[in-house]
Design a binder for these strands. Structure first.
Ligand SMILES: [Zn+2]
Ligand SMILES: [Zn+2]
Ligand SMILES: [Zn+2]
Ligand SMILES: [Zn+2]
Lengths: 164, 164
DNA sequence: TACCGTAACATTATGATATTACAAAACAGT
DNA sequence: ACTGTTTTGTAATATCATAATGTTACGGTA
């Protein structure tokens, strides 16, 4: 099984077929979990789908609310556990500047990614930019610091909102 | 009045004279507030001092606890208001990956800075690295995104901890 | 099938962080 | 001192996340 390719990392047109995004994300998730011998259980799968309802970060309690509207009313730990699983498998990312979660555009990839967050429409785009990573690595090394992880979240205006 | 210079941005030796750091930070804060015609009131000043007790980020409730041990027992809004003031004046930074606040090494400077956070000892160092900023700007521009602000928080090991 | 061990999930409660709304006090300019 | 503005106090509440404990579902074994 070949690894999933980058998908939906950038900003997409408003009228793109979002069903395809969700379907591709699920397909990738099934593949990644299959390769690793971990289980994409119904709760985990449903949480991933809910996150992929849009290209915008969703808070844990917003996910809870969606689940509550489906007969099923789990408590916070259920959602957080599913999120932790998805984070561990690299299927979603956590955005600490928003306390929210977004689907990963390159499921299972190594590295933390960088995020562009539109303050106008709430849309997020994921970068995995080697130039940024290299600059960070270099800046840290100059202070004698060894990087383990990074959070890069850039807020501003997406291409759709910058014009209006 | 000349603007404060960069101070204490990097990792300092364990035995540096930290009283100097605090004194310099307060001096800079007084200068910045004086130039701008805003008031560094006793609460704001004290919160800034508490944050500068060390080179490690402090949570709002940790600050509250210190204040409580001083006869004076303010409620959360008092601390959050002081923090908001200090953030606005560029005297402290908020680290969203830690939900904590740290003194700014270049009081009043423009830009968001980048932070190195040691997971072993909790120490933070601030960078204002034009290379990182340029890389981010370029990566964002390639997606048609206009940057307004950024959060760059790098976790890993500081020079003191990497050896042990 | 019955058994066991592990992984996943449910439930309750609580911890940690942050904000709203309104009242009182301190301050600055007159 | 009078007045409008800024700052602080206080109580309640919202929001985000985890601890602690017990139960259920699943997969392997005999
Ligand atoms: Zn990703
Ligand atoms: Zn937008
Ligand atoms: Zn700074
Ligand atoms: Zn350290």
């Amino acid at each position: 099984m070949n690894s999933p390719q980058e998908r939906n990392g950038g900003f997409l047109p408003d009228q793109h077929d979002h069903g395809d995004c969700v379907a591709a994300a699920l397909e990738d998730a099934i593949a990644v979990c299959g390769e690793r011998g971990v289980r994409l259980t119904p709760v985990r799968r449903r949480v991933l789908e809910i996150i992929w309802q849009g290209h915008r970060p969703l808070g844990a309690y917003a996910i809870l609310e969606v689940l509550s509207g489906e007969g099923h009313s789990p408590a916070p730990p259920t959602v957080y556990r599913a999120l932790e699983f998805l984070l561990t498998q690299g299927l979603v990312h956590r955005l600490s500047s928003l306390n929210a979660f977004v689907g990963c555009s390159r499921p299972g990839h190594p590295g933390a990614g960088q995020f562009l967050l539109c303050t106008s429409c709430g849309t997020a785009a994921e970068l995995n930019d080697p130039e940024i990573e290299r600059a960070i690595e270099r800046g840290a090394a100059a202070e004698g610091f060894v990087c383990r992880d990074h959070t890069v979240e850039i807020s501003g205006l997406c291409p759709h909102c910058r014009g209006t």
